[in-house]
Design a protein around this nucleic acid. Structure first.
Length: 457
RNA sequence: GUGCCUGUAGCUCAACGGCAGAGCGCCUGACUGUGGCUCAGGAGGUUGUGGGUUCGAGACCCAUCAGGCACCCCA
C-alpha cells in the first residue's frame, strides 16, 4: 500500500492552465443558455439513495453509495437529471411551467476510467420542464448547435432518433421486449464495429437470421433527414407508435430548421439507443469525428421520470453537455482562449528605490480593469523578471526605471516578439486593453496549428 | 467488474540478472537597464509501493497502487 500523496482514481485535479479552458467552456455555455431564457439551478451532490434508485437502469450499480453519520443511506448523484426531477416534484407549487433551467456541476460514476471517462465528471444540463411540444425538443437542438458553435466546433454532427423508432424496429422484427435490450446495445455500436459486427452480435444473442437482416436494413439507412424518415415511415408501416414517433421527429426537425439549425449538422440515426432508461421520446447526441471521443453531449425526452416523484406526468426534454469531453477535445485541438495565463502584463520592479512607483503603476492599471501581476522581490534582476513573465506566458512586461519616470513614460515590452516601446504612462492602459482583447479571442477547431504556438523564434 | 500492456531524474526515455545513464528542462555564472541564442559549471534517484527468488534485482516471481488499450457501458 502506497503512502504517496495521490488524488482519487478517475477524479482529476485541474491546474490553472486547464482551469482557464474549463472556465471558458462553462462561461460560454452559460451565456448561450441564458440567451434562450434558461435559469440557473443548483442542487446538492448528495441525495438519498432512494431518490436515485430505479431511475437510470442497469447502471445503478455504478452509483457511489454510503451511509451518513446518522446511518441514512445516501448516494452521490449520478447525473443532474434525477435531482431535477426531485426538485420539480418538491417545489411544484412554486414553479411556473414550462420551466427552462440549466445546471452545471459534477456527478459521480463508479466506472473504470478510460479515455473520456472519469469517475467525477462535470456536466452542463439544460432542460425544458412541463412541455410536450416538439418546439421544446427543437429548441434543445438549437441551443446545443449554438453552444458547440460558440465553443469553436465546426465539424460536429447531432444524431437524432426516437425511442419508439427503436421500439418499432424491434416490434416489426418480431422481437419481444426482453430480447430488445440486447438488440439496442448491439445496434448502438454500429459506428464502432460496423455492419458485420452488429450482424454477428445479433446472431449470437439469438435473433433469427431474417430478423437480423431486417434490423440491419433499417439501422443502416443513409441520406438526408427527410429521406431517412420517409424510408422509416414506409418500412415501419403498421406500427402505430413508430409512425407517431416519425411524425414527432418531422415536427422537431421542422422547428429546428426554422431556428437556424443547419441541415448538415443533423442525422437521423435509428441506431441511436442511449443508455439511460428514462428516455421516452426523441433522443440525441452530438459527436465529432476528430479526435475520436464518443459523444460530447447526449439527451432526449423523458416524459415519465418526473412523474415518478411528482405523482403526475410532467413532460420534459433536456440534455447534458459532457464538460470533461469538451475539455479533452478542445485541449487536443488547441481550441479555446489563446492565453494560458490570467495576467496580461507583469509590472517589473526596477530596483528597491523604484518599487513603490511601479506598484502605484500596477494599481492604476488594475483600476482600469486590466489583469496585472507584479514582481515580488524588488532586488531581483530585471532579466529574471522578464524570464518569469515569459515562462508564465504573460504577454507583456512593463519597465518603469528612473529614465522613464523622468519622462512620464513606461517601457512596454512584448515578450513573444521582443519588441518594446516607451509610451506615455497615461496611454499604457489603453494599449494593453486592446492587446488583452485579441489575446482572449478564442480559436476554433479549424484554426488549430499556427495561431496557438508561442512565437519563440 | 474482465483481459492485455506500462510504471526508472521535473519531462521523454536508456541500462545482457553485475558501478543507475542520456537528451530536454531546472539552478549559477559569462551578461552591472532586458528573457529566448551560445558557452562553462552545478543540483537533482529509496528505479510507484510492499514482499519473495538470488552471492547480487531497475530487470525474474507474488501482491498492491497508478496510467494506457480493448471489453462492459457512458458525457
Amino acid at each position: 500500500m502506497s503512502s504517496r500523496v495521490q488524488n482519487i482514481r478517475g477524479m482529476r485535479d485541474h491546474l490553472p492552465s486547464a482551469m482557464i479552458l474549463r472556465q471558458y467552456i462553462i462561461n460560454t455555455l452559460t451565456s448561450v443558455f441564458e440567451r434562450y431564457g434558461f435559469e440557473p439551478l443548483q442542487t446538492p451532490i448528495v441525495e438519498y439513495a432512494e431518490t436515485l434508485d430505479g431511475k437510470i437502469g442497469d447502471d445503478e450499480k455504478l452509483i457511489y453509495r454510503f451511509e451518513d453519520h446518522g446511518g441514512r443511506k445516501v448516494a452521490l448523484r449520478y447525473d443532474q437529471t434525477v435531482p431535477l426531477a426531485r426538485v420539480v416534484a418538491q417545489y411544484q407549487g412554486q414553479l411556473l411551467f414550462p420551466w427552462r433551467r440549466y445546471a452545471i456541476g459534477q456527478s459521480y460514476r463508479g466506472e473504470r476510467p478510460g479515455r473520456g471517462r472519469y469517475r467525477e465528471l462535470w456536466q452542463a444540463d439544460i432542460d425544458i420542464v412541463g412541455s410536450a411540444s416538439p418546439v421544446a425538443d427543437a429548441e434543445i437542438l438549437a441551443v446545443l448547435t449554438d453552444a458547440l458553435t460558440a465553443l469553436g466546433f465546426t465539424g460536429f454532427t447531432t444524431l437524432i432518433s426516437h425511442r419508439q423508432v427503436l421500439g418499432g424496429i424491434a416490434r416489426v422484427s418480431g422481437l419481444d421486449e426482453a430480447a430488445a435490450g440486447n438488440v439496442y446495445r448491439a445496434i448502438d455500436k454500429l459506428d464502432k464495429i460496423g455492419i458485420d459486427g452488429v450482424r454477428n452480435e445479433l446472431l449470437q444473442s439469438g435473433v433469427a437470421p431474417d430478423a437480423v437482416e431486417r434490423i440491419l436494413a433499417l439501422i443502416d439507412l443513409q441520406g438526408g433527414a427527410d429521406e431517412v424518415l420517409d424510408e422509416l415511415e414506409r418500412r415501419l408501416q403498421g406500427d402505430e407508435r413508430a409512425q407517431q414517433a416519425i411524425a414527432n421527429l418531422r415536427a422537431i426537425i421542422g422547428y429546428a430548421r426554422a431556428m437556424g439549425v443547419p441541415e448538415e449538422r443533423i442525422v437521423i440515426a435509428p441506431r441511436l439507443a442511449r443508455g439511460l432508461s428514462y428516455y421516452t421520446g426523441a433522443v440525441f447526441e452530438s459527436i465529432v469525428q476528430n479526435p475520436p471521443m464518443g459523444s460530447l453531449l447526449g439527451g432526449g425526452r423523458y416524459d415519465e421520470l418526473i412523474g415518478m416523484f411528482a405523482g403526475r406526468s410532467i413532460p420534459t426534454v433536456g440534455l447534458a453537455f459532457g464538460i470533461e469531453r469538451l475539455h479533452d477535445v478542445m485541449e487536443e485541438l488547441g481550441m479555446g482562449p489563446a492565453s494560458r495565463t490570467i495576467a496580461v502584463a507583469l509590472v517589473t520592479l526596477f530596483n528597491p528605490e523604484m518599487a513603490p512607483e511601479s506598484l502605484r503603476l500596477a494599481q492604476e492599471l488594475r483600476q482600469a480593469g486590466l489583469m496585472i501581476e507584479t514582481t515580488l522581490d524588488p532586488s531581483e534582476k530585471l532579466g529574471k523578471q522578464l524570464q518569469y513573465a515569459d515562462r508564465r506566458g504573460i504577454p507583456y512586461a512593463l519597465v518603469l526605471g528612473p529614465d522613464e519616470l523622468a519622462r512620464g513614460e513606461v517601457v512596454v515590452k512584448h515578450l513573444c516578439s521582443g519588441e518594446q516601446r516607451s509610451v506615455a504612462r497615461s496611454a499604457v492602459a489603453g494599449m494593453l486593453a486592446s492587446a488583452a482583447e485579441s489575446q482572449r479571442a478564442p480559436r476554433t477547431a479549424n484554426e488549430q496549428g499556427g495561431l496557438h504556438e508561442r512565437q519563440t523564434s
